[in-house]
Design a binder for these strands. Sequence first.
RNA 1: GCGCUUAUAGCUCAGCUGGACAGAGCAUCUCCCUCCUAAGGAGAGGGUCGGACGUUCGAAUCGUCUUAAGCGCGCCA
Length: 539
Amino acid sequence: MEIRDLLKQNIQLALKELGVDLDLNEIVVENSKDPTHGDYATNVAMKLARVFGKSPRDVAGLIVDKISKDQIDHIEIAGPGFINFYMKNDSITGIVQRIIKENDNFGRSAKKNEKVNVEFVSANPTGDLHVGHARGAAIGDAISRILDFDGYDVTREYYINDAGNQIDHLGESLIERYKEDLGLPFNLPEDGYHGEDVKIIAKKIREKYGDKLLEKDNPLEFFKLVGQELELEKIREDLKTFNIVFDVFSSEKAIRANGAVEKEIEYLKDHIYLDGGAKVLRTTDFLDDKDRVIVKSNGEYTYFMPDIVYHVNKLSRGFDKLIDVLGADHHGYINRMKSALMMHGYSQDVLDIELIQMVRMMKDGKEFKLSKRTGNGYTLRELCEDAGVDAARYFFVMRAASGHLDFDLDLAVKQSSDNPVYYAQYAHARLSSVLNSASDIKIDETGSLLKEFSELELAKKLASFEDVVKIASKEKAPYKITNYIHELAEKVHAFYTECRVIDRDNIEVTSARLGLCLASKIVLKNALYLVGVSAPEKM
RNA sequence: GCGCUUAUAGCUCAGCUGGACAGAGCAUCUCCCUCCUAAGGAGAGGGUCGGACGUUCGAAUCGUCUUAAGCGCGCCA
């Protein structure tokens, strides 16, 4: 058990003796920021001052008298009524043994038997992924990894909008580019895709399927289908280089098949009214501030309609929870979709929409938007080439998703300490290097000889990993992990500088420190894994 | 006009759901390699937490008002 949980339990027991029942999660025990405040501290005495009708310091005194002092060296009452715990070294360094034993699984929670579907990226297969998609991809995948680590059963899903206008535009544009490639007169549609990438795809289609495609019965359908396949293949490849693999690709077309949309409309009929020939869903009965058209007066569906079907479809596949990672411009969409799901009797919490704010690409202190090569937007592929996958993924998740992100390309490329990715990876490489240099020395896994300040600080940081994972999971906040990685790397570097590990004249201390190195290396690696960043042995 | 989001050091951001002097990293300055990776460490300066009022023993954190910025408010997707 983690020390903080142990302290909480002890406090709970002490309070019980004093006649106060308090839930465990109401008891806050925090890592003291300041070493002069002990290792851990709690504010319960101040919280309960009124209940006891005494001053916070007096209440603290009562609690301290009753508390079990097993692993505690001594306790101080400080400031307005904080209780500061000074732990015995053993109770702090004992974590080393557990980490080494659990290894890759340290920090992982037991299976919860809850199925979560995380939908992200879901870009239309009409062009390359750009940096906006890339941030969504990095965050969506990191959330998936964190939830998985926290014991959820996670499915990563990509929704392909292959039935909408966008695909029509793609097909039309491809036909024109195909004509161009054949040397025929061509005329790009105004709302088509004018970029170079479409030209390339058209060329590919011609190479693969020949010059007679325009003579087909329905060339548009053919170009739509083949074009989309090729675009999707490209997207999949790009995501793979970005270290992201989806479990499921769902197609809008497939979901619309077999009258699923019509059935859904029938199901929702009590919530639908007609307005000038259009069918409108009364979402205002639930969370929305406005009713939404689902079938236009010309009989076509709005985007919203098949999307309802899609979300219901996801839930019908047995997921307990859906998470959508979407661009921040979708926030009007949240209450709309939740309302529709509530019409099915689901709780509004069954769907969790994580909004991702814009990314601004910065170079030389100035924003840039375009790719140098194609004249289109800057793509994920180029970003991977320019910044590297590790740096890109780290940068995308290191800020709260709800905030705008300035991606400093100069910094991401820089191989120095200013670059947070290298700072963390370097810590890992250093530990590896030490362990390699001392591979002949037996490692003491008990942690019992550790006593230096920087050793204890590092051990405490290691112990808090499990908690950090839980919080990051609960809040769907991968940036909590990168913050932790940075703090842990700091403690590692401080330990490395203060404590020489390998000392052949003192094998006992050496092997104890090697144990700490190994434990730190494991935790650093596990944490980096959660955000999809590699942990190099050498740099 | 209504709604959502954001506002913390010169810059980019944390702040553990109300606690002990507001923290990092860049940038600036000073020190530290006879020794496991100096891609590192130690230290200094820098803040009326956008503003005002309120709740509280206690507010960057909660509430109201206000200012500024971004986004959303289609029978678009």
